[in-house]
Design a protein around this nucleic acid. Structure first.
Length: 483
DNA sequence: TGAAATGTTGGGGCG
DNA sequence: ACGCCCCAACATTTC
């Protein structure tokens, strides 16, 4: 009867395959209007960070190209989402809006308001699950509450009896022959110009659904079966590097889940061979973080363990700056922070070491680290970022105990024993022999000279002594416990 | 998904 | 041959 089109409101689901909102819209048999709204001014302080904006630009361009290859392109608009939706509805006569859910507290509140508003206007509105294996309200303890410990959560996920199959790209995908106007992506200025700190990003990344699928296929072909052992070695390509693709929804956790299990079955006959099991548990760590964010919406700002509000954090802008710029004098920490700055990503093992150093050695508030990562990571994700920083600080759910303090020297020796990683990211130390690479302050004058190093000039002295800092942190923790 | 301190064990040098 | 000490190597506990 009516041929009014349907709006598919793309958010963090920048893909066509396994996109439940797109599929639901296509099933109406009307033309669709693929719409992206840049509205992150409303995000309560969690607007896209710099590195995320770089990625978003590429990812939007990729989605637009994918859509154009089938029919019309992506419509871009900027402004408050509800106003933009109203505008597009009045311009096109659309009578339905579809989207995949987001779980940030500000987004939940906004989407709820918009849903109510559109229903008041008698539009069809449907929200779908495009981002998670399980909705946060679906996995519950026997008491009916949310899980606060990972291991039982992971067990509960495996007991659910299966993850539904990914959806194909809907065919046909028809768009309006005269679509509404779109902003020019270039003019959103999402990418940095002067200085262009993202100059080297393209060497590391190919944003978009195609790049994501390739990354997954490569990982499943080469590395997943060794993942259990290799994932901790930052100098080796043992991790999937799917995090930014997952964050922007260029690939779905369902697609990863099924592809990994299919690969495991075909190679080993087991659905979850060792490395595959470990890899999927990491995907479920992401789910666990979303579970925490949903049930504890203050996760990004307040410690889950409330007694931590009294922790004697230290304000030290110079030390914070040294950490941010990779100039702490601890090679493994500095390597990580420079990898982050150069590529928009840091190896997970090194994230833990660098975070432990900021929180426990420098006693700087974890939210400073959270904010820096938010701005510099291409995979910056509110749930994962907040949950992980609280985990390291010891104030989160299922948190690392406070007395678990990483020793950057031992961690470096254990996980980067041949110095591949440190030499790549801290090239001024490359000439040191392995045995002192993680402890340049213990190198002999001859070793320093022949490596061309003058401590304090070509590479910094340690900004704190780890042994002393460890004692200070433990004392602060004991005081907190006693209070 | 630690590290450091403390405790225990056992082999070998030595009187 | 035997006991004693030293001290790795490993285990346990403590933070």
């Amino acid at each position: 009867m009516s041929d009014a089109p349907s709006i598919v409101w793309f958010r963090l689901d920048l893909r066509l395959s396994d996109n439940p909102a797109l599929t639901a819209a296509a099933q109406r048999g009307r033309a669709i209007i693929p719409l992206f709204i840049l509205d992150d001014d409303d995000a309560e302080g969690w607007a896209f960070g710099g590195a995320s904006r770089w990625w978003l630009h590429q990812s939007l361009a990729a989605l637009d190209a994918d859509l154009r290859a089938r029919h019309g392109g992506l419509i871009l608009r900027r402004g408050p989402a509800q106003d933009i939706l109203d505008q597009v509805i009045s311009e096109t006569g659309a009578d339905a809006v579809f989207w995949n859910r987001r779980y940030e507290p500000w987004a939940i509140a906004r989407d709820g308001r918009i849903k109510e508003h559109l229903k008041d206007r008698d539009l069809t509105v449907e929200s779908c699950n495009g981002a998670l294996l399980n909705e946060p309200w679906e996995i519950k303890t026997n008491q009916g509450g949310p899980y606060k410990v990972f291991t039982p959560y992971w067990k509960a996920v495996r007991a659910t009896g299966g993850i539904s199959d990914p959806l194909p790209i809907p065919q046909p995908l028809s768009t309006l022959s005269s679509p509404p106007a779109s902003d020019d992506l270039e003019r959103w200025n999402l990418r940095p110009t002067r200085p262009n700190w993202a100059a080297a990003f393209p060497e590391s990344w190919t944003p978009g659904a195609e790049g994501a699928a390739e990354r997954l296929a490569d990982f499943l072909d080469d590395d997943v079966f060794a993942y259990k052992d290799q994932r901790n070695a930052p100098g080796k390509p043992g991790t999937s590097r799917l995090s930014p693709h997952l964050h922007f929804g260029e690939i779905s956790p369902r697609q990863i889940w099924h592809a990994a299990i299919a690969k495991s079955l075909s190679e080993t006959g087991e659905p979850m061979a060792d490395g595959v099991m470990t890899f999927l548990s990491e995907v479920v760590w992401r789910e666990f973080s979303y579970n925490l964010l949903y049930h504890f919406p203050h996760l990004p700002t307040d410690p889950l363990k409330t007694e931590f509000a009294a922790f004697p954090w230290i304000e030290d802008p110079a030390a914070l700056k040294a950490w941010q710029t990779g100039m702490t004098g601890y090679p493994i920490v500095d390597a990580g922070m420079r990898e982050l700055w150069t590529t928009g990503w840091m190896h997970n093992r090194v994230r833990m070491i660098a975070a432990s150093f900021l929180i426990k050695d420098l006693m700087i508030h974890w939210s400073e680290g959270e904010a820096w990562f938010w701005d510099t990571l291409v995979d910056a994700d509110l749930a994962s970022n907040a949950a992980s920083w609280q985990w390291v600080a010891g104030c989160g759910a299922d948190a690392s105990p406070y007395f678990r303090i990483f020793n950057p020297v031992l961690q470096g020796g254990k996980f980067d024993p041949d110095g591949t990683y440190v030499r790549q990211w801290v090239p001024e130390l490359a000439g040191l022999p392995d045995k002192v690479l993680h402890t340049p302050w213990e190198a002999s004058p001859l070793e320093l000279r022949s490596a061309g190093i003058t401590l304090g000039q070509t590479y910094p002295e340690r900004i704190v002594d780890h042994g002393w800092a460890r004692d200070r942190a433990l004392a602060a923790y004991k005081a907190l416990k006693a209070a």
